[in-house]
Design a protein around this nucleic acid. Structure first.
Lengths: 339, 339
DNA sequence: ATGAAAGCGCTAACAG
DNA sequence: CTGTTAGCGCTTTCAT
């Protein structure tokens, strides 16, 4: 069922058949209709590979995320997909599982398969890898800041400022012994949050105290365990900033089951604005990241690059996070602040 | 940077270069090493399209889901991806957004791009569509039962039996006015659950009462609104079975804020075993679906089909759900049952 | 073990 | 407007 068969059956040349597929305006309406009819009858679909062997425009873009079950990742994916679908592109969504080897593998396969562009979220690739990609002619956009990387097309949210705002808010609520439950250090995201934390404390005249910082796994269990350690250590705290909602939920679970009252005894803030946060009691104050919009912006940026094959300058797009105030920090102080 | 260039540079013919890529055992170790070195030096990657123009084995499978943000969908995806990665395949994950048109589009594009197989979750396609796919030589597996479809390779969980078990459990806990908050009817999943509900009631000698059935959107808001209507209607109930956890969470939120005590006044069961369910107070009794395993099984089945191009018989694999008993139904009755 | 050459299905100059 | 034909990059007989 190739183009030749269609041509024979329709009594025309292969070129004409090819034309009705690629430049229909160059074919008489009459023959065009006839050929289309024959194609339908024969149930013909052109061989996509033969088609792309020369042009190498595949209409596909790749999107790498760390974890399909992470809603933040998937919101980005939805944003990307929505733009891509508008533009008639398809998205290859790949799950790297936080595995740098798998990430590299995927990048190579995708480039080999001549995807038109690539969006990397929270990449573990180094500058050298990216340079090599660029040399191979790959178009790509990064999502999520990475300190070791510069001069790239990138979309990110500013975690430092957002954290700063959250801590400042806790201070205006009258809290001063503010614990920090935070992920591993090498991650740029984590470091930004730590910086924001320190900066807000400094601004508020509160000395930084290492003893208030607890590292934990970014998971509910991680938060739970961190809270356990906090209680065991008996370090006095009147607030905890957990650097992700997942951790915050674990912290909340532990504190509640230990009879600690939130927000009366300890105020709690998370980061991510997971939907769950609005369902637990007390509802969790948190910082909402514009993940969907990041996906949109990343995709738009990528298509700008793909289509306008001219601009050499790299774009850096920073989006704003937003503090979402709910009950987990109390509201007396809040009222004071307002009135 | 094509095969010819490599051949020239290595002083061999294109055939030899091709052979080191496809049948390395047919080439002297010496020349093989030499050619590999040249390929590395030239940074050569074969043109994937030219390669597949004849063989049409792409090493890709497609996976269609309705919503990237639905954790159940994504657990399936993880299961599929894990098997695929093992087998050296890549997964094209597509988001149909519950849009039958988009689903059809994706199916066609994927088949056109010669994916080796396709996994459809909760498909809206009809038998005729599937037959046409089969005729085109597409390999596919369905995930999630569909009443209008038969004789297909399919993996699903039995919602009816699971619901039955849950309702039976409520009855053994001494509840008898059991409300049902359920999704729209045309969906097979919904209908199975309704049947299970009716069957358990019948078995327990409780007459079915239409007034206890509330339709709702499958969302937290939907559950919330359904609970509002239940309270407004003042229909006496001592238990509610919500056909999804999302709805159950909405129901819980509303009931709690209306001062109704769970489980003392009303017992509550959900369906899906979302992680959130274990974090709300009281922790939600629910039914856990083996989504990840469904993904695994579906992928295995698909690869069996792809690789063993012989078996004509279709396979139907039913997996078991499991009732996960937590606090939202109380435990006095439970204790009674145990001792 | 290696090379020459005939395709694979399609597109796009070039001719008419 | 349509047909002829030379590629696209690679694989695979068929010789040698």
């Amino acid at each position: 069922m190739n183009i030749k068969a269609v041509a024979d059956r329709a009594g025309v040349s292969v070129a004409t058949v090819s034309r009705v597929m690629n430049h229909p305006e160059l074919v008489t309406a009459e023959t065009r209709e006839h050929i289309l009819a024959v194609m339908k009858k024969m149930n013909y679909t052109p061989n996509w590979f033969a088609r792309n062997i020369q042009s190498s425009r595949t209409g596909m873009i790749g999107l790498l995320v760390h974890d399909f079950l992470d809603p933040s990742n998937m919101e980005i994916a939805k944003g990307v997909e929505s733009i891509a679908h508008q533009k008639g592109y398809h998205v290859m969504l790949c799950n790297t599982e936080f595995n740098p080897v798998k990430e590299k593998e995927y990048v190579e396969t995708l480039i080999e398969r001549k995807i038109d562009g690539l969006i990397l979220t929270a990449t573990t690739l180094k500058n050298s890898d990216l340079d090599r990609m660029k040399k191979q002619g790959a178009n790509y956009v990064l999502v999520g800041k990475n300190k070791t990387i510069n001069r790239q097309n990138i979309v990110y949210t500013d975690y430092k400022t957002a954290t700063e705002e959250a801590i400042r808010y806790l201070i205006t609520m009258g809290r001063s012994r503010i614990g920090l439950v935070i992920g591993e250090y090498p991650k740029p995201e984590t470091e930004e949050k730590l910086e924001g934390y320190k900066r807000a404390l400094k601004e508020g005249g509160i000395p930084f105290d290492e003893a208030l910082v607890y590292q934990a796994d970014n998971s509910i269990e991680g938060g739970f365990l961190a809270a356990s350690r906090i209680l065991d250590d008996k370090v006095p705290m009147d607030a905890i900033f957990a650097s992700t909602d997942q951790m915050a939920l674990g912290v909340m679970d532990k504190l509640k089951s230990a009879g600690v009252h939130i927000p009366e005894d300890i105020a709690l803030i998370g980061f991510d604005d997971l939907r769950i946060g609005a369902l637990v009691e007390p509802k969790l104050t948190t910082i909402s990241k514009p993940m969907y919009r990041m996906g949109l912006m990343a995709a738009r940026l990528l298509f700008d690059i793909i289509e306008g094959e001219g601009t050499e300058e790299t774009q850096e797009i920073a989006l704003q996070s937003k503090l979402k105030i709910r009950k987990s920090c109390g509201n007396k102080g809040r009222l004071k602040e307002i009135w």
